[in-house]
C-alpha cells in the first residue's frame, strides 16, 4: 500500500518537474522577446529602415544591412536550392548501396554538424583568396549556400522518402524512365516538403553572422550594392554581386559591441526586424507542411 502511494507521489512530482523543464525554454523565449521589444520597439521607424549606419545612434539605420541581406539571400537560394535538391534526388532515387554512397551519407551528416564559423574559414580561404572574389556579396552567398546545403539535401531526401513506392511502381509499369518518373510524379508530390526544407534553410542562413564576419563582410557600410536595374543598355547589371556588403545580423553585432548605450537600442530594433523575418519564414514553412499533410492522403 505504502509502495503504491510512493509510486503515485513519484509520478505526480515528476509530471510537474517535466512540465517545468519543458516550459523553461518557452519562458526564456518569452523573456527574450519582451526584453528585445521593450528595448527596441520605440526605435523602430521608417527612418530606421531607410538610413545608413551613423556615428550618432539616434540617426543610425539598417538600410544597407537589410538590402545586403536581401541580396545575399537571393543569391544563396539560387546556388543552394538546385544543388541541394539535385543531390537529394540522387541520394534517394539513384544511389545504389555501395561503400561510396555510405561515405557520401556520413559526409553529409557530418557537414550538417560542422560549426558555421568553419564554413566562414572555408569561404575566406577558397572564395575570398583563391578565387579572388574578395569580400563580395557572391563570396558571402557562396559561403552560406554551402552552409545550408546539408539542410536542403536532408529535407529533400525526407520529402522524397515520404512519397509512397506504389507511385513509382505505377509510373514504371507504364513504361516511364527513371527521370520521367521522378520529374512528373515523385518530385511534384514531394515539392511541398522540399520547399519547406528550403525555406527553413534560408531562415537559418538569414540569421548567420559568424561565417560572414570571417570572410570579412564589413561592419560599417554606408552604400548599397550596385542596383541590378540600370538605365543604360542592357538595363540589367550583375555588378552588385561583386560589391562589398553587410547584413542585418552583422549590423546588430556591430551595435552590440559598441560601448555607447544608444547603440544597444539600435541593436534591439534591428533584432526585432530580424526576428520578424525569421518567424515569418518559419511560419510559412510550418503552414506549408501542415496544409499538404492534410491535402494528400495516400
Amino acid at each position: 500500500m505504502n509502495r503504491k502511494l510512493y509510486n503515485k507521489f513519484l509520478d505526480k512530482s515528476f509530471t510537474i518537474l517535466g512540465l517545468v523543464a519543458t516550459l523553461i525554454g518557452l519562458v526564456v523565449l518569452s523573456a527574450l522577446l519582451i526584453d528585445v521589444f521593450t528595448d527596441g520597439m520605440g526605435r523602430l521607424s521608417w527612418q530606421f529602415l531607410m538610413s545608413y549606419p551613423s556615428r550618432r545612434p539616434e540617426e543610425a539605420g539598417i538600410l544597407s544591412a537589410w538590402v545586403g541581406t536581401v541580396w545575399v539571400m537571393i543569391l544563396t537560394g539560387l546556388i543552394a536550392f538546385p544543388i541541394g535538391v539535385m543531390a537529394g534526388i540522387y541520394l534517394e532515387e539513384y544511389e545504389k548501396k555501395t561503400w561510396f554512397s555510405n561515405i557520401i551519407e556520413i559526409n553529409i551528416a557530418n557537414l550538417a554538424g560542422v560549426p558555421s564559423i568553419i564554413y566562414g574559414l572555408l569561404g575566406l580561404g577558397l572564395f575570398v583568396r583563391v578565387l579572388a572574389l574578395e569580400r563580395s556579396v557572391l563570396s558571402g552567398a557562396a559561403t552560406l549556400a554551402i552552409l545550408v546545403l546539408p539542410i536542403i539535401i536532408l529535407s529533400t531526401r525526407e520529402a522524397l522518402r515520404a512519397v509512397p513506392f506504389s507511385i513509382r511502381e505505377a509510373s514504371y509499369a507504364l513504361g516511364a524512365t527513371r527521370w520521367q518518373t521522378i520529374r512528373s510524379q515523385v518530385l511534384p508530390a514531394a515539392m511541398p516538403g522540399v520547399l519547406t526544407g528550403a525555406i527553413l534553410a534560408m531562415s537559418r542562413a538569414i540569421g548567420e553572422t559568424a561565417p560572414l564576419i570571417t570572410i570579412g563582410a564589413l561592419t560599417y557600410v554606408a552604400f548599397l550594392p550596385t542596383s541590378p536595374i540600370s538605365s543604360e543598355f542592357p538595363y540589367i547589371s550583375f555588378q552588385g554581386i561583386f560589391d562589398a556588403f553587410t547584413v542585418l545580423p552583422i549590423q546588430i553585432f556591430n551595435w552590440v559591441s559598441r560601448p555607447q548605450k544608444g547603440f544597444f537600442t539600435d541593436a534591439a530594433a534591428g533584432i526585432i526586424v530580424l526576428l520578424m523575418i525569421t518567424f515569418i519564414m518559419n511560419g510559412i514553412a510550418v503552414w506549408l507542411r501542415y496544409r499538404y499533410q492534410k491535402k494528400i492522403r495516400w
Binding site: 506504389s166 507511385i167 511502381e169 505505377a170 509510373s171 509499369a173 507504364l174 494528400i296 495516400w298
Partner: peptide, 16 residues
C-alpha cells in the same frame, strides 16, 4: 517491355 505489358497492382495507386 513495360509499354507492351501493362500492370495493375494490389492497392489502387492513382497518381495524385
Amino acid at each position: 517491355i513495360r509499354r507492351q505489358i501493362g500492370m495493375v497492382f494490389q492497392k489502387p495507386n492513382p497518381f495524385p
